[in-house]
C-alpha cells in the first residue's frame, strides 16, 4: 500500500488517548495531518464511541478530513500489552489514516479490507513484530 508513513512498536501504553497520539505521530511528521487532526480523532471516540474498533483488537483512529488532514497517509502502531479503549475493549493493533484524495483513500480502504477479511493475513498482522513483517501483510 502506498503512503505508509510509519510502522511503530510499543510494549505498553496505558492510555488509549496516548495510543492514538502515538499512532498519529508518523502522519504528523510526514506532514499528512495537522496537530488538530489528532485531537479530533480523540474527540471522535469521546463523542461517538468506540466504533473505530472495526474488529476485535483492531482500532482505526481517524477523523473527518476537515479537521486537519493535509495528505493521504497511513500509519501502524502495534502494542504488545493490550490498550484499554472506552467500553472495555482491548486493542493491540492501531492503524491511523488521513485522506484528502478520495480515490487514493478508497483504494487504501479497499486493500485494508482485503487484509482484514483474510484470517491468515489477520493472524500474521497480529503476530508481526518487525516492520518488514507488517509491510509484508499490508504493502
Amino acid at each position: 500500500m502506498s503512503n505508509i508513513c510509519g510502522i511503530r512498536f510499543q510494549d505498553k501504553i496505558s492510555d488509549w488517548k496516548d495510543a492514538i497520539r502515538q499512532v498519529a505521530q508518523p502522519l504528523l511528521e510526514k506532514g499528512c495531518i495537522q496537530e488538530s487532526y489528532i485531537d479530533a480523532m480523540i474527540q471522535n471516540v469521546i463523542e461517538n464511541g468506540n466504533y473505530i474498533i472495526i474488529m476485535p483488537g483492531f482500532a482505526m483512529p481517524h477523523a473527518r478530513p476537515e479537521f486537519g488532514a493535509l495528505g493521504n497517509g497511513m500509519s501502524v502502531l502495534k502494542v504488545k500489552e493490550p490498550v484499554m479503549f472506552p467500553g472495555d475493549q482491548e486493542v493491540t493493533v492501531l492503524v491511523s489514516f488521513s485522506g484528502v484524495n478520495p480515490e487514493e483513500h478508497l483504494e487504501m480502504i479497499s486493500k485494508l479490507t482485503d487484509v482484514l477479511m483474510d484470517d491468515e493475513l489477520v493472524d500474521k498482522l497480529f503476530s508481526a513484530s518487525t516492520e518488514s513483517e507488517v509491510l509484508e501483510v499490508i504493502a
Binding site: H62, I109, L116
Partner: peptide, 19 residues
C-alpha cells in the same frame, strides 16, 4: 453509517459487499 462515512463504515461496506 458512521460519523464521517469515510473510515469505519467504508471498511464495513467494502467488506460486506465483497462477502
Amino acid at each position: 453509517a458512521c460519523d464521517a462515512g469515510l473510515g469505519s463504515s467504508a471498511m464495513g461496506a467494502n467488506a460486506f459487499r465483497k462477502r
